[in-house]
Structure formats: C-alpha cells, structure tokens
Design a protein around this nucleic acid. Sequence first.
DNA 1: ACTAGTAGATAGTATTGCCAAGTACTGGGG
DNA 2: CCCCAGTACTTGGCAATACTATCTACTAGT
Lengths: 109, 109
Amino acid sequence: MGKQITEMLKGTLEGIVLALLATAPAYGYEITARLREQGFEDIVEGTVYALLVRIEKRGLVDVEKVPSEQGPPRKVYSLNASGRTQLDEFWTTWGFLATRIDQLKTEGR
Amino acid sequence: MGKQITEMLKGTLEGIVLALLATAPAYGYEITARLREQGFEDIVEGTVYALLVRIEKRGLVDVEKVPSEQGPPRKVYSLNASGRTQLDEFWTTWGFLATRIDQLKTEGR
DNA sequence: ACTAGTAGATAGTATTGCCAAGTACTGGGG
DNA sequence: CCCCAGTACTTGGCAATACTATCTACTAGT
C-alpha cells in the first residue's frame, strides 16, 4: 500500500485506537502490536505514542502506570466517559463519510 | 459535524473528486457545488481548487479552458489514464480501511 | 559484553484541509 | 454611474496529523 493509506489514516486512526480501547484497556506497545496484527503493517510506534499523548491531553482516557516484568513500566490507557462520547461521534462521522463514498462507488458504473 | 470530518477528508477528498470526475468532466466551481449537494456542506472552494492544482501537477487529469457565459473562463478537468489508475488504487485502499473499521465496529459490542 | 525484545519519548518533515482575502467578469437595482 | 450578487479561479498563512529517525531504559539470553 502506498502513501494513500497514510493520508487516509489521518482522522481515522484516532477512532480506530479509541475503538480498540473500548474493548479493553491497553498500553502503547500492545496497541501498536494489535494494529499490526489487524493488517496495519506499517503503523509505527512513534505514531501511536504521539496519538496516545494527544488523547490523554484531551481527557479522553485515564492512565495508569503498571510495572512490567520486562522493560520499563507500561502506561495503560482506558477509555473514560469523554472518550466514549468521542468514539460515538467518530462512528457518526465515519458513517456519514462511508455512506457517501460507497454511494459514489456504486454510481461510478 | 465537528473537526473530525476535516481530518477524515484528508486522504479521502482526493478520491472523492477523482470519482466525481470519473462520471463526467467538470470544473472547480461545479465540483464544489456538487460536493455541497451531496452533503459535504462545509467544503470550501479554496480546498477544491488547491486539490485540483495538485492532481493536475501529478498528471492525473487533463485540463481544458472553456469560456463561460458568466464570469471568467472555466478550467474543465477530465480524468485521464493515470487518474483512472489512481482512482482504482483509491478504491483498493478505501476497501482495506473500511473493512477493518467496520470489523472493529461489530466487535465493539 | 553484546544482542534482541519490551516500552516509551521526541524533534523535525510533509501532506492536506481550512480561513481569509483578492482578482476578474456579467447583469440588475438604486 | 456605482454597487452588489453570482460565477469562477487564485493564493498566503495556519492547524492537525502521520511518518522518519533517533534516543532512553530495562531484562534476558548468548
């Protein structure tokens, strides 16, 4: 996949991460790994950490430091009420966009 | 809609415009109007014109100047072979992303 | 001592959409 | 005659966000 996916992820990656956190709290390294498993092969740790800092500053997640058996302590993020609201808005916006784009696709033949 | 849609459009707006041009050649003002009709109320002319300049520079469209009965001459853009290839790639990338996000949505309950 | 794996942070860059203002042309109202 | 609305395109500056590259810190195995 080229750089198209990079630009498409702007605005959606945050929602994707919020959705992941909605299923269970997680820490950065883990989130990166999950994204990779799910097909987002080229998403890089730096991107995820920066995003997590951002959503923490906006108060969408609660953070807890948990010692790790291996390596430095983990910062475990869990979605709070604000985050769930934001996630709902994400689904609304996504639905809006996806509907219109899918419509364009079917019109295109 | 908040600023979420703004970020989401990054990377998708180009594909949307290419898809519009795939149905018929069009000029900037017209494209802006069509987008507005289709629900993208807050897309601004400046954004569309800048995008058109970009895809022209990348050789995805052919341009023809056509005199208008009212106002300055129109720059009519039509998708060429390169543009159609790019559009195909857009649909592939979009399919990839949409599949994964929809999957996250259904998992989320 | 060295390497690999885990875990996080950050400075700099590029892309892209938005905002705001300006240019150019036509036709109608005061 | 001047101003305004509508059509049509241009441009300079700003903000958000993903990527690149590099760095720190800790543990375990060779």
